[in-house]
Computed example of a mutant assay.
Amino acid sequence: MRRLVLLAPAVVLLAGCGPTIVTGTATTSPPSASTGTAAGAELPPDPQPGATKDCPYLDSEFVADSNGQHVSKVRVSADQPLPSCFFYRPDGKIQLTVRVYVGDAKTATALVNKAAPVDTSNPASDPTGWKGGYQSADDGAVYAVSKGASAVIATTNQKQSVKARTVVKKAIAALKL
């Protein structure tokens, strides 16, 4: 706060300066390696669990079979038209989350790169035509792919990324993306 007070007079002083003309060629900032977004671009906020109800594009029984854990509850985010789905295990902890984004291609790619960074994840190309990445961590795995203006990202508490991939493929097929 103290720095802000000291900088305030300088900001006021500079605000009265006239425009400066700069000649040369403008260049764009390179994409960020961690998110794949250009400097200053903002991604939609991470979805949050909301209402307790069925996932509109994935059946709980399919998720239980695919992830290897009983599904005790499903909650969906308020995102529209395609909410994110949060599948819970019997102890009340989230076992699997599926996020679907449909909007613009740059944001779709950036969301995938945020979930499975290009620098640290393995390349993913399943289903055909979709591109992204997958990786395992101590707390589970992620499989994230995009195609055009769509992205589908699954995170699981299981370390095998094949479980998340199976769910992503089913979501893409169900939504006809």
Results as ranks from 00 to 15, higher is better:
17 C>H: 08
158 Q>E: 11
95 Q>M: 15
96 L>G: 04
127 P>V: 04
114 K>M: 05
46 D>Y: 04
127 P>H: 04
81 P>S: 01
156 T>R: 00
121 S>P: 08
164 A>E: 02
55 C>F: 05
166 T>K: 09
165 R>D: 02
10 A>D: 08
173 A>N: 08
146 S>H: 13
119 D>I: 11
161 S>G: 14
113 N>F: 04
132 G>F: 05
52 T>Y: 03
177 L>H: 02
177 L>R: 01
16 G>Y: 03
11 V>A: 14
159 K>P: 14
103 G>I: 07
15 A>N: 10
123 P>I: 12
92 G>T: 10
71 V>S: 02
174 A>E: 14
73 K>H: 07
151 A>Y: 01
46 D>F: 07
112 V>G: 02
150 S>K: 10
44 P>C: 04
102 V>Y: 03
17 C>E: 14
6 L>N: 10
68 G>W: 03
29 S>H: 07
122 N>G: 07
44 P>Y: 06
166 T>Q: 08
63 V>D: 01
57 Y>P: 01
157 N>F: 12
151 A>H: 00
64 A>R: 01
9 P>N: 09
66 S>F: 02
14 L>D: 10
37 T>F: 14
17 C>L: 15
78 A>P: 12
105 A>M: 06
89 R>I: 06
88 Y>F: 10
126 D>S: 14
76 V>I: 11
150 S>P: 04
39 A>D: 15
124 A>R: 08
2 R>I: 11
55 C>M: 04
95 Q>S: 15
64 A>E: 06
97 T>G: 00
105 A>T: 10
18 G>H: 09
23 T>Q: 15
59 D>P: 07
31 P>M: 09
14 L>F: 15
2 R>T: 11
28 T>H: 07
75 R>H: 12
132 G>T: 07
141 A>D: 09
148 G>T: 05
99 R>K: 12
117 P>V: 06
48 Q>K: 12
26 A>L: 11
9 P>E: 06
93 K>P: 10
16 G>D: 04
160 Q>W: 03
10 A>H: 13
8 A>Y: 07
105 A>L: 04
171 A>P: 00
51 A>D: 12
90 P>C: 10
137 A>N: 12
51 A>L: 15
64 A>I: 03
5 V>P: 00
22 V>M: 09
108 A>L: 09
9 P>W: 06
16 G>C: 06
155 T>W: 09
87 F>K: 00
98 V>H: 01
64 A>D: 05
95 Q>R: 09
135 Q>Y: 12
174 A>T: 13
7 L>H: 13
152 V>H: 01
115 A>S: 14
45 P>V: 05
50 G>N: 05
118 V>E: 13
15 A>F: 14
163 K>A: 13
125 S>Q: 13
52 T>P: 07
107 T>G: 04
127 P>K: 05
16 G>S: 07
50 G>Y: 06
